[in-house]
Design a protein around this nucleic acid. Sequence first.
DNA 1: ATATGAAGTGGGAAAAAGTGGGAAATAATA
DNA 2: TATTATTTCCCACTTTTTCCCACTTCATAT
Lengths: 147, 147
Amino acid sequence: MLIGEYIHTIDEKSRVSMPAKFRKELGKKIIITPGLGTCLFIFTNKEWEKVSKKLSDSDSDLSFLKADQRNFNRYMFGRAAEVEIDSIGRILIPDFLKERIGLKNSAAIIGVGDRVEVWNDKTWSENKAVVEKQAEDLAEKLATGAK
Amino acid sequence: MLIGEYIHTIDEKSRVSMPAKFRKELGKKIIITPGLGTCLFIFTNKEWEKVSKKLSDSDSDLSFLKADQRNFNRYMFGRAAEVEIDSIGRILIPDFLKERIGLKNSAAIIGVGDRVEVWNDKTWSENKAVVEKQAEDLAEKLATGAK
DNA sequence: ATATGAAGTGGGAAAAAGTGGGAAATAATA
DNA sequence: TATTATTTCCCACTTTTTCCCACTTCATAT
């Protein structure tokens, strides 16, 4: 399971280390796509097969209009890239994806169960603060609602 | 059953001893996560499987399509870590989790039945006083059937 | 009191992870 | 084709993490 948060440098050649703890599960080749929200998604090959099958299945339970689905698929498929992890665990993120989330020198790499997310480190810490607060509210709700 | 309260040092290498009484039940690898409120949760692998299944199982297999779910998963998975208990019973708490609850030199480690909680020792002693007062009332409420 | 063992703490050395950069290989351009 | 730029591969440095050993404290037993 892919979990945890890592802040890694993006060097002048655009290389980023995948956290060592992720490497075994990720394998040699990964799929990197624009994500939802201000981040990128990285899937293992296996996970990507599942995801892409689901997305392209027009009979799926996704409540998309056909046109919406086409556009969504263009978004997810058209801008996805298969990327190889080099011998010491680094990948290259395509420029058009880096641009999308404003990646420059430093990235937050997040394990979210069955996928990895890549964030601009600053955006990540901001988002973290927001979600932290939401979680507290949720806890509060649960606590008061339970009584 | 994990019970009891222990105050342990966090050394310069971020190591903390798990109470000896917890070790057998915890096993070799544990999952440490941001809890709710001002503490961290430690789960056994077995417990975590239950918890994580609940978290990631949504109505759709594509849980990432829902913004709320995305954020919650980011919170619970992205800020969790699988950590190994070393040969003499110590663990390493990731910096991003220490930061979250302001852990520095000393931690309160609390057994709470099927999980362990980690507190900033000061926060713990403050809360303890409050909770102690509330405990009686709470017991009363629980006994009278309110959930 | 002294010995014994278990638990917690500290620190040095080896290994691993992350980062940077040069040179070869490939592609692009003139 | 020659030249330049880009990508890939490999090596090296630095920092962090891991592993192992040792010291201390506390409780129990002799």
